[in-house]
Amino acid sequence: MKILLTAKPGTTSQVKTGNWRELVYPVIDIEKCIGCGICERVCPEGICFPTGEKNSSGKGFYACDLNWCKGCGLCASECPVKAIEMKEEGK
């Protein structure tokens, strides 16, 4: 037995489950984003986060970490300003 089968606490985040995503992925238009944070609240994976940066209209905008995004599209459907578009994988 050579392969280590145990895991230390907190190491689940090393497993990048974004490769489960098959069809679509979110793209945030940072110029449209108003920084309301709804995407962060609805995301089942908790991977939408405020970047801490501001767009040209002075709004703090959000980003998604595609390493864990499953492409469910909840963020896009809940975004009040339609700043998130679900694009087809590979395009």
Partner: peptide, 16 residues
């Protein structure tokens, strides 16, 4: 602390 039988993706399951 350690986890036994933790999650494994298709990337590693076969080798195990």
């Amino acid at each position: 602390p350690l986890s036994f039988g933790a999650f494994v993706t298709p990337e590693h399951y076969m080798e195990i």
